[in-house]
Structure formats: structure tokens, C-alpha cells
Design a protein around this nucleic acid. Sequence first.
DNA 1: AATTTTAATAGTAACCATTACTGTTAAGAA
DNA 2: TTCTTAACAGTAATGGTTACTATTAAAATT
Lengths: 124, 124
Amino acid sequence: MRETKQKNLIMSIISNSYTHPTANEVYEECKKTIADISLGTVYRNLNLLACQGQIRRIKMPNNIDRFDRYSDHTHFICGICGKIFDVPGGYVKNIIDIDGHKVMDYELNFRGVCQNCLEKEGEI
Amino acid sequence: MRETKQKNLIMSIISNSYTHPTANEVYEECKKTIADISLGTVYRNLNLLACQGQIRRIKMPNNIDRFDRYSDHTHFICGICGKIFDVPGGYVKNIIDIDGHKVMDYELNFRGVCQNCLEKEGEI
DNA sequence: AATTTTAATAGTAACCATTACTGTTAAGAA
DNA sequence: TTCTTAACAGTAATGGTTACTATTAAAATT
């Protein structure tokens, strides 16, 4: 694998982001630095980095993937506004070996209604 | 909401399935009973049932959603062959209220290499 | 430093799971 | 039985993602 300025830029954008950006949002951010970067390049590198375990892919209900620094395993996704929040760990235990399968990672998504949407519901 | 033979059929297929079928697989199964059922009808009812919490939607790495009886929250997905396995519960604790958000459900996906792919790797 | 190799890129077209649309049908109420 | 309209079948459109191709530029070699 070759080191390119495009790959480094994409990696640094994800590393420094706390917003779980979509591929297109990463693309828009990239264009500020490399004006003619290709959307395909963004997708290819996001896939590559996710496959290598350097970043995390988060599957969203609307089928638009989001990406995240690798540190977070646990998220809360609001079913009303669709926003995604980081959640501190500690909810999962005993993850070594399940039914003979080798566990390398996990993704835990809580679903419900976020604080902001709860308050809005109260106003109705 | 009206009760229709299409909706009942789709619900019964999911209820009696242990294979986490895709929308298209549900469609193919439906056609054995209702030959001219529409793929759009399958999608509409799967979305409806998932939204009502009667069935569960599982987001897969390849962006093709799978559907499941509502009982299972926890799955293991193999990164090699892509197969999905049911996992008994007990891995998640303390799921009441997170940072002020109302938690109504959760999805826990373990990722790794399944037993079968582990054995194949050993053969190389 | 110049040359060579080829992985990665930019730009664009294609893919395909899913959704939207429209005229028709049938569930359930009147 | 008639009426209302939610749900349906069939089909077109959408859009996130992937595939393709000529070109560029890492980085190894000379």
C-alpha cells in the first residue's frame, strides 16, 4: 500500500472528527484541501481504512454509512431525528469466543428517542 | 392498518424463519404462496413491521438489509463469508437511560471470523 | 538524478437495493 | 350490497456506492 496525500487527508479528517461524517461529508471536507479529489477516491480509502480496522463504519437506518475514529464501539441513534451520539463503554462484557467464532470487534447501537426530541415531544 | 393476506404471509415467513432473510429472499418465499405479489409490497410491509417493532432489521456490511424475528438482539457476522449467526443474550447490561436519551432497543453485532472460516484458514 | 514499475487517482458510467408513483383491487365500515 | 380508501401490482425513478479507464505519481531500481 502506497502512502498518498489523499489517503493521509482522509485519515486525518476522520481522526479529528467528532461528527461521524458520511462519505460525502468527508468528500466535501477533503475538497477544502485537495480541490479536485474524486468521490471514488474517498470511498475507496474509507473502505480500505475500515477494512484494516483503522476507522469504523457505522450502519445507519437510512442506509447512508457513517465513519468514526476507531475508539468508539457504542452509539445511540435517535429514531426521530436520526442523529447519532457517542456512548461511553462498559455495556458489553465477556466477548472472548462465541460459539466457536473468533470475535475481533463489536458494534453496539442503542435506538430510541434522544433528549432533544424528548423535549420537543413534551411541547406538543 | 388493514389486515391483508400479503402482510400476514410476510409476518409468518419472518416469524418462522431462522435464516435472517433479505427482502428479496422474503419476496421469493412469498411467491410460492401468492404468485403475483409485488416486491414493493414486501418492502413496504417489512418497513412497516420493523417500524412497529414486530420484526427486526439487521444492517449488514454489504448494505443489503436482513430481517429477523424480534426476539434476537445480538448477532455474530463473519467478515470472511458474510454469514450471520444468532448469539444468546447476556452481553449487554444497564440499558436504562443513557445521557438523557430514552433507550427503546439495541442492536449488538459481533464481527470476526466464524468457526467454519477458521477451519478453512487452518487448511491453507 | 533519471528511469521504470505499477498502485492510486480523477472523472465518469454503471450498478442495484430501495423508494416513489399510478391505476387498480379488496378490506372493512356503513 | 354499497362505499370508502388503505393496500396492492406493476413499473419507473432515486441515489449511495462501486466499477471502469486513461492518467498520475509513489517509491523502487538503475
